[in-house]
């Protein structure tokens, strides 16, 4: 499964779809929420965020392997996401909740780069960038080597990827120059 997630957009989307409809995973995350005082209406946000974090971590960290099964790992993320949400809502009375809840110690979710509400705006502004452009920039910024991007996206050579990345990044920089709003949105 991890290889499929790292195999490019098609494989990644296929795994997301499988996990999204995985009733066993859904039940287990419901269980996590129930155990920590979550309500039914909290489920979808926690589930989506956990799934996103799992896929993102797998793509970004190519060395990542699991000591437990993937469902347990995603449940660990869900627990972390939910307790983080509870903290935000000020529902817990203690500061040391992380230690007390025995959180998955092999996972520390990175904070989200793009706030969900800003996602649409940014996505719209970036429509001018072609799909390949976005994909190349995405892999590059997430730490992939040119040779790895070439293999993932079927480019003939590293040089071609380098050129593509260069052109796309230049285009993005020009877009930022022309759309100062985009810069403001990120702040």
């Amino acid at each position: 499964m991890l290889d499929r997630i790292r195999s490019g957009k098609e494989g990644r989307d296929a795994v997301i779809s499988e996990l999204y409809y995985d009733q066993s995973l859904i039940n287990r995350i419901h269980g996590v929420l129930h155990k920590y005082g979550g309500k039914k209406e909290d489920f979808q946000d926690v589930f989506n965020t956990s799934l996103m974090q799992f896929i993102k971590s797998t793509v970004r960290n190519k060395e990542l392997k699991f000591t437990s099964d993937i469902h347990s790992y995603i449940c660990g993320i869900a627990k972390y996401v939910w307790l983080g949400e509870l903290k935000k809502r000020g529902k817990y009375l203690t500061d040391n909740i992380d230690d007390q809840y025995d959180l998955a110690d092999d996972f520390t979710p990175e904070s989200l780069l793009i706030n969900h509400s800003k996602k649409e705006i940014i996505a719209n502004l970036l429509k001018r960038l072609g799909r390949n452009c976005k994909e190349v920039l995405m892999y590059w910024a997430n730490g992939y080597k040119m040779s790895e991007i070439a293999e993932l996206m079927n480019y003939k050579s590293e040089g071609m990827v380098r050129k593509k990345k260069h052109n796309c990044f230049k285009e993005l920089l020009l877009m930022l120059e022309q759309n100062p709003d985009l810069k403001m949105i990120l702040k």
Partner: peptide, 27 residues
């Protein structure tokens, strides 16, 4: 471009989140 470099890289990095969330939203 040099001044905006960090933002551009940050947006590029965030493209992964945007892509994954797009797929999840579609589902």
């Amino acid at each position: 471009a040099v001044e905006n470099y960090d933002e551009a890289k940050s947006i590029s990095e965030g493209l992964l989140e945007i892509d994954i969330m797009g797929t999840i939203d579609k589902l």
